[in-house]
Design a binder for these strands. Structure first.
Lengths: 339, 339
DNA sequence: TTGTAGGCGTTATCAA
DNA sequence: TTGATAACGCCTACAA
């Protein structure tokens, strides 16, 4: 900036004023001279120096368990897209499900003076961690938006899915097709979302006056392998349909079915959860519960920007409704046999 | 830092010295006092201020066409992981295949004083753009590592796949199974990598003394839809096998086969390219050419760190060898019919 | 062994 | 309509 100032023989103050379009009334002549000089010298403001004095970095920290997981990848895409519209850049970090890294990245990004943080916690994040987490967040006085996996603590903005409704929709669909013995491959018990999906599943059963049989629930771990392991167990229970609490496990079911020569949906109906990209490409295409990722990502950024602008932390949960995508993995159940 | 200095009644210089473990011999007593005070006050250095004076941000810019594309998502994961081991953070941007955004992000990240940039260019990046690109990079004097899609210009470090070899491996595999009429669904003609894959395919044919028939090549656009469209055309040519230049198009082939009642691999053999996550979950699992993404990502970071440390731009191409993953989508061709 | 002073590139306050 | 001058939080010759 000094170069520009020197070139036009004015002070840096004046240069700064016109380059930033400040309301000070500066004569059209000098304004144009400065603009010309800046262009000629190819002047570009040093963002670091600006941040130093304005105390704003136009940067947002994004902390995710694993960006190579399609769900988070999609979320990251949406969030970055939205941020760029606001002139914001995003710093991102993968925690790989380690609570230690949750904290590390939080601190790193805070040290880097990000204007806000959007993060999804690791599964193993416990109640004890919540306290420490809140302490850090409060004392840093930086807005933090939790997405998908949020601590069970008040005073934090969170953007989440109504997992219970999702489980309910899945079960309801199977029920409406006449299925009565429905197996469920649930997720890890320490993942609230997984638990809620199972609850929704139970709710639908209750509503249909079908007694819940815990023998029909296989606890998986969200991996395809666990889905494959679940199938034979469920088959032993004579289920005619399976609700897998995520698509990866449904995928595992597909694999196992191929192995055992069981046809989907003729021999068994399958519903998944998440609607990951590949669901539509399976054979048959997987009927699944979809999360409105785009909407959720946009809401995260909207909340972050609002919090930055207002300077207040904000709070409350923004709950999104999942949608059942009916494709080809389910069919009507008829007494004599499935299909 | 002033707070700490005040608390122990010493100058900020001394505090800075011990907090940064500088070799100055400072008495153990004051050192401990300072450390204690820093901890007590929960002192954390302001990264921005440090960057201001050291002129290093410990930050790297990552510019990708689309992080929700599994290939780039995986790459982003590896790169971030590696960077974090060096104490580096990563700023990332999605260009969505727009050359305009290629430049925008480059400038934004340069303005933010990133220490290095790792980027994959948009497909439509032309030779004219290369010149402007180089100008910017040179004048910014910041190391830029190109990955996957690189400009056809010298003086830039690039980390790429040997696409030609990949196409060669795919064709060779089919050839070794006895196939003679092999269809190829190629990629966009303005994507060098796609062209090279096709070339490798031709090379293998040549080697096997099979005349290349351009009627057996369908030009796709890397989308599943184009793969689906290609199938009937190729079938008209009585091909017994298909090499799809990426897995998405192979996926399209799977879909179309389902539609036409054609069995893979019994009626037709299929080879893909990329080994995206879902390839292993298809029915049958897709035989495909895999890119060593992890190695490539690590190399990018290694090159970036080396360039930062040495202060020199560096140059040269780091070419990685693809690997054929034989799964279940190909089978031996026998005269009377495909197997 | 420790402190003084200057500077990194901007913005902001207040005066001219 | 413009310009001094002082921050912002830290590092680092050089001096003491």
């Amino acid at each position: 900036m000094q170069d520009v100032a020197r070139k036009v023989g004015l002070s840096t103050t004046t240069v700064s004023l016109v380059l930033n379009n400040k309301p000070n009334r500066i004569s059209e002549g000098t304004r144009r001279k400065i603009l010309a000089a800046a262009r000629e010298l190819n002047y570009r403001p040093n963002h670091i120096a600006v941040s130093m004095v304005t105390r704003q970095t136009q940067t947002l920290g994004l902390i995710l368990p694993d960006i190579s997981n399609p769900f988070f990848a999609e979320l990251a895409r949406v969030i970055e897209d939205e941020c760029s519209r606001y002139g914001y850049s995003v710093l991102y970090g993968n925690t790989h499900g380690s609570v230690k890294r949750d904290f590390e990245y939080l601190n790193i990004f805070l040290d880097r003076s990000v204007d806000a943080v959007i993060m999804s916690l690791s599964n193993s994040f416990g109640p004890d961690d919540s306290k420490r987490f809140l302490d850090i967040v409060k004392s840093a006085n930086v807005p933090v938006i939790m997405v998908d996996r949020t601590p069970d603590a008040p005073g934090i903005v969170s953007v989440v899915l109504d997992h219970r409704l999702g489980g309910y929709l899945a079960a309801k669909h199977l029920l409406s097709l006449g299925h009565k013995r429905i197996g469920c491959i649930s997720g890890p018990e320490n993942v609230p979302g997984a638990v809620q999906r199972l609850e929704g599943f139970k709710n639908a059963l209750e509503e249909a006056k079908i007694p819940f049989d815990s023998g029909l629930v296989y606890t998986g771990d969200f991996s395809a392998e666990s889905g494959s392991r679940a199938l034979p167990c469920l088959l032993d229970q004579n289920v005619t349909a399976v609700f897998a609490c995520n698509d990866m496990m449904a995928l595992g079911v597909y694999r196992a079915c191929r192995l055992y020569g069981i046809r989907i949906p003729d021999d068994i109906s399958v519903v998944g959860f998440d609607d990951i990209y590949l669901s539509d490409f399976l054979d048959p295409p997987l009927t699944t519960v979809a999360q409105p990722i785009e909407d959720m990502g946009r809401e995260c950024v909207r909340q972050a920007m609002a919090a930055i602008k207002s300077g207040t932390a904000g709070s409350g949960a923004f709950v999104f409704r999942p949608v059942l995508k009916v494709r080809g993995s389910c069919t009507q159940y008829t007494k004599g046999g499935n299909s």
